[in-house]
Design a protein around this nucleic acid. Structure first.
Length: 931
RNA sequence: GCCCGGAUGGUGGAAUGGUAGACACGAAGGACUUAAAAUCCUUUGGCCUCACGGCUGUGCGGGUUCAAGUCCCGCUUCGGGUACCA
């Protein structure tokens, strides 16, 4: 009987849907298991074969856990807000909601064909009001909260206001944008507007003037993780720095907790390391410098200024100071003599885009004219201004130690500033010595100490003397949360007297209004400025206020989506208590590495915040995380002879001057070009001529990113049409280790398909179902139980490629044994159900289970007994080289094995009459005779 | 520059320190067939040998060990991430 995968797959997909097989509910009698895929952004291009890789892996794991008796939550949804739909809307006028809906439908169709076990009743779309109501709600909670640095947790802003009223800014321990000092009386004397402005300094969701990544081409600001090397990740447009009033989330307050939390997570070390670097904790000291007597700056700023350093031990080597061009100190420092030079420099810096700055590492800077005093050595040192110091990190001012910092070194060389070596034996004539090791010299009271000792001693000294304090800095910045875009969540915010206020929570969701064009207004306001009646009325209707015109960024909707899946229909809470306490958090999260510093930081932050307020019961959202590798494209090339329309086959191309041209991989099979299809592919090639080898046109190939422009996109539907979903699922897994990146290469898919046919063949004799009820033989049982053991171990360790091999070995062995025993095939069907659910369901029913589903079958119990061998094959090696093997009884003692091995006639040849110096017998493994 | 991964046949890949190359693709040969497809069987790291068998072999160079693809040290190289973060 032929394996008719089309009929089988269609039949069971329909059955599962009708029976609601994948519907999940809270069941206190069963242990829960939550398996989550990073939900996709539904792009217009649809899914390519790379997307389902992770989904297949998580589906196998979900099905396995379910067969093992767990109550598995395995949902799917769409990250539906985003720039591409809006860009498309700008170009075509098509509403992004419509494009998004169409794309989602297409995604759903593609996903359905692969036979996933998602509970679609729990589907969420981030652009639906029922969903984004809770994104807005969370924003309100953040607006209404501040972060207590003492207790390291979020608290209601009302508690902070109470402190202000009692004792002003004294001992408030609140994470803040700026450190402010005021008394209770001063607070009370402020107008409401002033109070509101001041509170923004502490709110977790706050509005502030910030230096942002402005992308003119996209017309919006971008978060740090949305920019790479001065270009936007989406679209690759240049990004520049600009000061704008923007919503931000005080993620930086959570830096330490985000760092500490990593230790408890079952994530790969490299991913945790990426997050640690992104958080960038550095321990050092903040030290106060004063301006030198006689400098105008000394009068303007008698309090001096702070610098942050991780190397307080190098204080005696400070030969100049550097300020960031954006630092407010720049104005204070510039002397009249230097004013014009400073001004010119600031202008030049302002003109450079972020990208130019990165690309062009020239040393630039200007002397301010002022001098500072080294607080420990008392030396007078010049204050410079340079863009190698960043305003956003530390205090925006540094003490430069050219001998032991490569950036300071480059600067001092360029401007010919002195370099004082501080470490014994360090040669700093050519480059700085940056390592934190060695013995201190030229350093007053630190001389003779090791660097580490000197760091500790300097910290003690400066704290004691009141020069400075020990300080921890983080690289992690607050997340900019405004986008000057249409297609995103509206902020539940209105403005009164220029100050933001939250709309009444009962009015959530605040729905995205319709607009006529998806472009900024003529006056340069965001697209929402075009909406009619985009206003908010006070409760008594006495006043009408304008609503916020920005929308939220892409990561807003994806930060807590995993919570919503637990309780997707709840209209009273993001997630109900019962559902949250049952499902708790994600046990297994599978997705790409590209979210390492964006989504995976934001959602950890978001979750910790909700945890602080008592809305969720787990502090970390994703217990175990696996990054699936990328599926790269395998592009094909044809070689056109230059200046002609003639194409030459790969192995003959070197005889001509050729240009390689990408050719659609879908008209190439095993690197052989379908010439007819090629001619029809593009009118330009209608008349193409070919120089063939062996009557075929062989294409060249290369591994590249899978993308439309490379013509190497392979669509899962095409594979499903040709081979079936089960083959696709198995083949994607068979390709190699899940976490490794690998090219999609269809060569080899036949092997997997053949395996399924062989498995199918075990059930039939000709066209007739043929199953035996006889007891299985020892050999059959051994094959089965070996397989159970291997599959279980491989699934647990996410080694799905080797489990597919194990299935192949099993079927090959059963085939050789001509096994058609019901009990063996039944167990095997259940094992296979996690990987190839359609064929497994069919065979399970063929075996007589006419009612239920293989999805709910009990996982076969592995029995060690069947694997016991009466004899073992020992490799006998001489000096580590295996020469022959011996079959010996399994229970033979090592000393007897030794005897048998030595007296064996084959051994005589290798012993060459010598007496062995040593004999190693590893029971069950090997014998090594050392001569 | 820094931080993570890798490097094994023609290809994808497998191997708790214990017979390297499982499983699959491809290739070659054979069976079945009028023929093809499908299916089945055999061979397949390299070199030497009719064969038995031997030598060699996991990016390179050292080391530890009875035994190293696996552990340690030093390189080469290819990916990925990140970067004036003081």
């Amino acid at each position: 009987m032929e394996y008719d995968f089309r009929a089988i797959e269609q039949k069971w997909q329909e059955y599962w849907r009708k029976q609601g097989i994948y519907k999940t509910d809270i069941d206190p009698r069963k242990p829960k298991f939550y398996v989550l895929d990073m939900f996709p952004y539904p792009s217009g291009a649809g899914l390519h074969v790379g997307h389902p890789l992770g989904y297949i892996a998580s589906d196998i794991y979900s099905r396995y856990k379910r067969l093992k008796g767990f109550n598995v939550l395995h949902p799917m949804g769409y990250d539906a807000y985003g720039l591409p739909a809006e860009q498309y809307a700008i170009q075509t006028g098509q509403h992004p909601a419509l494009t998004t809906r169409n794309n989602i439908e297409r995604y759903r169709e593609q996903l359905d064909k692969i036979g996933f076990s998602y509970d679609w009743d729990r589907e969420i779309r981030t652009c639906e009001p029922e969903y984004y109501k809770w994104t807005q709600w969370a924003f309100i909670r953040m607006f209404e909260s501040y972060f207590d640095t003492q207790e390291q947790k979020a608290k209601p802003i009302a508690a902070l206001v109470a402190k202000f009223e009692k004792s002003g800014s004294e001992n408030i321990n609140a994470a803040a944008t700026q450190e402010l000092k005021f008394t209770a009386a001063e607070w009370k004397a402020k107008t409401e507007k002033e109070q509101q402005e001041l509170l923004l300094n502490y709110r977790i969701a706050y509005l502030a003037d910030l230096k942002v990544n402005w992308c003119p081409a996209l017309g919006t600001v971008l978060a740090n993780d949305e920019v790479s090397e001065g270009l936007s990740i989406r679209g690759g447009h240049p990004v520049e720095q600009k000061i704008m009033r923007q919503w931000s989330l005080r993620v930086s307050a959570y830096a330490q907790r985000l760092l500490d939390g990593l230790d408890l997570l079952d994530w790969t070390e490299s991913l945790k390391e990426t997050q640690r670097n992104w958080i960038g904790r550095s321990e050092g000291a903040e030290m106060k410098f004063h301006f030198a007597q006689g400098c105008p700056a000394a009068e303007k700023c008698p309090a001096g200024f702070d610098v942050f350093t991780t190397r307080p031990d190098t204080i005696y080597g400070v030969t100049f100071m550097v300020l960031a061009p954006e630092s407010p100190l720049v104005q204070i420092c510039s002397t009249p003599q230097q004013a014009s030079e400073v001004e010119a420099y600031l202008e030049a810096v302002k003109k450079r885009t972020e990208r130019e700055r990165i690309a062009d590492r020239r040393v630039t800077g200007v002397f301010s004219g002022s001098y500072a005093i080294n607080p420990i050595s008392g030396t007078e040192i010049p204050v410079w201004i340079s863009d190698y110091v960043l305003a956003g990190y530390g205090t925006g001012a540094i003490m430069a130690v050219p001998a032991h910092d490569s950036r300071d070194f480059a600067f001092s060389k360029h401007f010919d500033l002195p370099i004082i070596p501080l470490i014994e034996g360090a040669d700093v004539s050519e480059e700085s010595f940056d390592a934190k090791e060695g013995i201190m010299i030229n350093s007053g009271f630190l001389n003779g100490l090791s660097v580490k000792e000197a760091i500790v001693k300097t910290k003690e000294y400066i704290s004691r003397e009141g020069i400075g304090q020990v300080k921890i800095n983080y690289r992690l910045r607050d997340a900019i949360f405004s986008r000057q875009r249409y297609w995103g969540e509206p902020f539940p915010v209105y403005y009164k007297d220029g100050m933001p206020y939250i709309i009444d929570e009962k009015q959530l969701p605040l729905e995205l209004p319709e607009i006529d064009k998806f472009l900024p207004t003529e006056t340069g306001e965001p697209p929402l400025g075009r909406a009619k009646d985009w206003t908010y009325s006070s409760a008594d209707n006495a006043a009408i206020y304008p609503l916020e015109l920005n929308t939220m960024p892409g990561f807003a909707g994806s930060s807590a989506y995993y919570l919503r899946y637990m309780d997707p229909k709840n209209d009273r809470a993001l997630v109900g208590k019962e559902a949250n306490e049952y499902w708790r958090n994600v046990d297994l999260y599978i997705g790409g590495t590209e979210h390492a510093t964006g989504h995976l930081i934001y959602s950890r932050f978001w979750n910790k915040f909700l945890f602080d307020l008592g809305y969720v019961c787990e502090e970390e959202p994703f217990r175990k995380l696996i990054n699936q590798g990328m599926i790269q494209g395998r592009s094909n090339f044809v070689y056109r002879i230059q200046g002609s329309n003639t194409f030459v086959s790969l192995n003959l191309k070197d005889q001509y001057e050729t240009t390689p041209i990408h050719v659609d991989v879908n008209i190439v099979s095993n690197d052989v070009l379908d010439i007819e299809k090629f001619r029809n592919w593009n009118p330009e090639y209608k008349q193409a001529e070919f120089i063939l080898e062996d009557g075929k046109y062989i294409c060249g190939w290369a591994i590249e990113k899978m993308s439309k422009s490379m013509f190497n996109v392979v669509n899962p539907d095409d594979i499903v049409d040709k081979y079936g979903a089960d083959t696709l699922r198995l083949y994607e897994m068979f390709l190699g280790p899940l976490e490794q990146s690998k090219p999609w290469d269809t060569n080899g898919i036949d092997g997997v398909h053949r395996f399924l046919k062989r498995f199918w063949g075990l059930f039939f004799e000709g066209d007739k179902l043929s199953l035996s009820d006889d007891a299985p033989t020892a050999e059959e049982l051994k094959t089965l139980h070996k397989t159970i053991k291997k599959i279980e171990k491989d699934i647990e360790s996410f080694s799905f490629n080797t489990s597919v091999s194990a299935f192949m070995i099993c079927v090959n062995e059963l085939h050789a044994l001509k096994c058609n025993k019901r009990s063996i095939l039944e167990a095997l069907s259940i094992l296979l159900a996690a990987f190839a659910p359609h064929i497994a369901e069919e065979t399970y029913h063929l075996l007589g289970h006419t009612r239920g589903s293989v999805c709910n079958a009990p996982w076969p119990v592995y029995n060690e007994e069947f694997l016991k061998e009466s004899s073992l094959t020992y490799p006998i090696s001489f000096n580590g080289k295996v020469r022959f093997t011996l079959d010996l009884p399994a229970d033979m003692l090592p000393k007897d094995i030794e005897k048998v091995a030595l007296t064996n006639e084959q051994s005589q040849k290798y012993l060459e009459g010598k007496t062995p110096r040593k004999i190693i017998v590893v029971p069950g493994k090997i014998v090594n005779i050392v001569l």
